[in-house]
Simulated scan of single mutants.
Amino acid sequence: MYGCEAWTISKQTQNKLEAIEMCFLRRMLRIPWTAKKTNERVLNEANKRRSLVRTIRKRQATFLGQVMRRGKLEHLVTTGKFEGKRSRGRQREKIMDGLATWLGPGKVSDILAAVKDRDLWRDMIANAYKQGTR
Score class of each variant (00 low, 15 high):
37 K>F: 12
121 W>R: 04
42 V>K: 03
78 T>W: 04
37 K>L: 15
98 G>H: 07
53 V>H: 04
54 R>A: 12
61 A>P: 01
119 D>L: 06
59 R>P: 05
73 L>Q: 10
27 R>F: 10
7 W>F: 13
12 Q>F: 04
87 S>I: 01
63 F>R: 11
128 A>K: 02
68 M>A: 08
95 I>A: 11
123 D>L: 09
41 R>E: 15
29 L>S: 05
1 M>V: 13
12 Q>A: 08
109 S>P: 00
112 L>I: 14
28 M>I: 10
108 V>F: 06
115 V>G: 01
37 K>Y: 11
9 I>A: 03
57 R>D: 00
56 I>W: 00
114 A>I: 03
33 W>V: 15
49 R>W: 10
117 D>P: 00
20 I>H: 14
81 K>D: 13
83 E>H: 07
95 I>N: 05
50 R>Q: 15
69 R>N: 11
47 N>A: 09
19 A>L: 12
7 W>H: 05
93 E>T: 11
38 T>N: 05
63 F>I: 02
47 N>P: 02
116 K>W: 02
52 L>E: 07
81 K>W: 04
77 V>A: 11
11 K>M: 06
24 F>G: 05
130 K>Q: 14
130 K>P: 05
103 L>I: 06
23 C>A: 15
46 A>L: 06
111 I>K: 10
39 N>E: 07
134 R>T: 13
84 G>C: 00
11 K>P: 10
55 T>I: 06
23 C>M: 12
45 E>V: 05
124 M>H: 04
100 A>S: 12
73 L>E: 10
37 K>Q: 14
53 V>E: 05
94 K>S: 14
132 G>Y: 03
28 M>E: 14
66 Q>K: 14
116 K>A: 08
61 A>V: 03
5 E>V: 08
13 T>F: 01
10 S>A: 02
1 M>W: 10
16 K>V: 08
78 T>G: 00
116 K>P: 00
24 F>A: 09
69 R>G: 01
113 A>R: 10
72 K>F: 01
107 K>T: 15
54 R>D: 09
81 K>V: 09
80 G>K: 02
111 I>Q: 03
79 T>P: 01
129 Y>A: 15
47 N>H: 11
2 Y>P: 12
69 R>T: 02
11 K>S: 13
105 P>R: 13
109 S>N: 09
32 P>V: 02
2 Y>I: 15
91 Q>A: 13
43 L>W: 01
116 K>C: 00
32 P>D: 12
11 K>H: 12
97 D>W: 12
17 L>P: 08
117 D>Q: 07
72 K>W: 02
88 R>F: 06
116 K>H: 07
99 L>Q: 06
72 K>G: 14
31 I>P: 05
67 V>H: 01
113 A>G: 02
95 I>H: 08
115 V>H: 03
22 M>P: 01
